[in-house]
Write a protein that binds this DNA or RNA. Structure first.
Length: 602
DNA sequence: CCACTAACTCGACACCATGG
DNA sequence: CCATGGTGTCGAGTTAGTGG
């Protein structure tokens, strides 16, 4: 008759040896249940050591606190209970600053790599190892800014894994992390803590106006130094603002709101001031713009500043490609939660957001909209858009868009000034340069880099610094050199001597006087200036951009354009010059080409 | 510039594994 | 036992690359 095995005889199978003492952060205050604490720490260890542990038995309460026993889930035999086991217990270290997890192990791993879902009809599922390898390669690819596609991953794997498994694993990964690397993902809590703290810190250089953590990390930061400088310039009205969104590296999208227009440095150059820095991952169409505009408004309001007269949005590049990505699907499937917020600012929505569902891009490429010419008088401006509007309403495939476009434009458009995206583009490159040298792997890395950059940009430009080439690349100008409005007269140095000036963010350059420029050009035969004396005023006409000769009588012609008093007169003149092209059976259209030619613009 | 194709993405659904 | 998560499959739609 067989004797019942004594516990001591069976025990050898469970002879645990200490594997390691693993330090981990102390449990937070709200993690009170020691069992939960131990369990999460055990999982954390398993993850850090790429060890699949599962199937925990009921926890036991011993003199050492709770003890958890689980087994390796990686191999077939382990899973069946004939392999390796793990035992965990833990507690605060003696110095009380860390949590020490004691990991014990018993038995050896045995059996083949366990196949997940062995019952599936298609054959084998991926193994744990498969998944780990795929995820690892995916991380590497993403960190290097290489598209993380099944093919790419497959090419980088050292062994063969079924493509459909790779695709499925990647899909799951995308669902969880999007395009973020796991390191970026892991840095979220740190970021969140800072975000909370920073939201109310009105003294800091960077302050959150918006942030969201889930499901994606996105934020808008206000850049205090530039807002304050702007406020100092009041009551001069803001003329225009350019919003620019662009890709910042592979893993996220950034936005810069730029007070591009007419912040004059030394009274003649236009420079950019970043007021808001925003990060908007991925595919939110125009919500990013809308959000940034909202933030901008709120801060203006908070500071009691007057809204800008013009608002330019670089919607073509930012919005169009994304749009296609979503074509054909319903609109509601975005994130319902965020929609509600846009409503508050709906008085001046982003152009793309209203129009008909998805049919906009062709219009946006129209030169009439994207490069409307500089028109010298209010009357010309009026006529130009009157003709164009009619054309849009009657000939363009989407009349609704025309209505929308004009509704939203009417309020802030004016003649004369066309804010160029160029400063915004340059600014963005500048920002990228500043960020590039720093390794940005975690959310806070980016914030730190931005903080450094803002510090550099916002240093005061003293008179001495303005003259020398060395020193910081500040975007600030000397105090008396900044204006929000276009100067009415040239500075004295422009007339007489020229000057050496350091442009914001750039190196110093010598700028000759206007006289010198003209003389030099004349000497090379490149410029011709036509003079027109009218009563008590003198007009000069010269080509801008390309140095071409001014045709005989051209100054007079331009003068006549300016002098027209009524719409009918101007229209007649424009028709005669071929600016307005009439065709049978359809509304007239503006010929930008002719217009440019006569303006002697390139 | 255009058409064609292979590669890719995504959502929906079913089903199983895992953890509580 | 239930909730959650990971995987396979299918179909629809998009994108990038290639060759004319």
């Amino acid at each position: 008759m067989e004797v019942v095995e004594s516990p001591s005889k069976r025990r050898p199978r469970f002879q645990y040896t200490l594997l390691e003492e693993y330090p981990l952060p102390l449990p937070a205050a709200d993690e009170e249940d020691p069992l939960d604490v131990l369990r999460t720490r055990a999982f954390r260890w398993a993850e850090d050591r790429s060890q699949a542990v599962g199937d925990f038995r009921s926890p036991q309460w011993t003199s050492e606190g709770y003890v958890l026993v689980g087994k390796c889930m990686k191999h077939a035999d382990c899973h069946a209970g004939k392999g390796r086991f793990f035992k965990f217990h833990g507690g605060q270290a003696e110095n009380l600053r860390t949590y020490i997890l004691s990991v014990w192990t018993s038995g050896e791993c045995a059996g083949e790599d366990r196949v997940l879902r062995p019952t599936v009809a298609c054959g084998t599922g991926p193994t744990h190892q498969d998944r780990e390898d795929v995820l690892q390669v995916a991380d590497q690819l993403l960190a290097r800014n290489v598209p993380c596609t099944p093919t790419n991953v497959s090419a980088k794997l050292k062994r063969l894994i079924e493509p459909k498994h790779i695709a499925a694993i990647l899909r799951q990964r995308r669902k969880q992390f999007g395009r973020n690397t796991s390191q970026l993902q892991a840095s979220v809590p740190e970021f969140e803590a800072w975000a909370v703290a920073s939201s109310n810190d009105y003294e800091a250089d960077l302050r959150f106006a918006r942030y969201e953590i889930r499901p994606e990390v996105l934020w808008g930061l206000l850049v205090r130094p530039f807002w304050e400088k702007l406020q100092e310039l009041l009551p001069e009205p803001l003329l225009d603002v350019v919003i620019c969104l662009d890709l910042a590296g592979a893993w996220e999208e950034g936005g810069v709101v730029q007070d591009g227009g007419n912040v004059f440095f030394c009274r003649w150059t236009r420079s950019f001031w970043p007021l808001i820095l925003a990060m908007w991952p991925g595919n939110e169409d125009n919500e990013a713009y809308q959000e940034v505009v909202d933030v901008f408004r709120e801060e203006l309001h908070r500071r009691g500043m007057v809204p800008p007269k013009q608002l330019h949005v670089d919607w073509l590049r930012g919005a169009q490609p994304r749009r296609r990505g979503r074509a054909g699907r319903g609109r509601g499937q975005g994130r319902g939660g965020r929609r509600g917020r846009g409503v508050a600012a709906a008085e001046q929505p982003c152009p793309m957001q209203q129009g008909p569902e998805r049919a906009i891009p062709p219009h946006l490429t129209s030169p009439a909209l994207s490069q409307s010419p500089v028109l010298a008088t209010m009357l010309a401006f009026h006529l130009f858009w009157k003709v164009t509007l009619r054309r849009m309403r009657e000939r363009w495939p989407d009349p609704q868009f025309a209505n929308y476009f004009f509704q939203s434009r009417r309020r802030f458009s004016r003649n004369g000034l066309r804010a160029s995206q160029q400063t915004a583009e340059q600014a963005w490159r500048c920002l990228k340069r500043q960020l590039a040298p720093h390794e940005v792997c975690a959310h806070m890395d980016l914030i730190q880099a931005l903080r450094r950059t803002v510090q550099i940009w916002s240093q005061p430009l003293t008179d001495e610094l303005a003259k020398c080439d060395k020193g910081v690349r500040t975007l600030m100008a000397t105090r008396r050199g900044v204006h929000l409005q276009r100067p009415q007269t040239p500075d004295p140095w422009m007339l007489a001597d020229g000057q050496t000036i350091r442009r914001p963010g750039g190196l110093q350059t010598y700028f000759p006087s206007i006289g010198t420029i003209v003389n030099k050009s004349k000497a090379r035969g490149g410029v011709s200036i036509q003079r027109l004396d009218m009563r008590n005023k003198t007009f000069l006409a010269m080509a801008v951009g390309k140095p071409v000769a001014v045709p005989q009588g051209h100054a007079r012609k331009l003068y006549d354009f300016l002098a027209q008093q009524t719409e009918a007169q101007l229209l007649q003149q424009w028709q005669a010059e071929g600016f307005v092209v009439e065709a049978a059976g359809e509304p007239p259209r503006m010929s930008l080409k002719a217009l440019r030619q006569v303006s002697l613009l390139k």
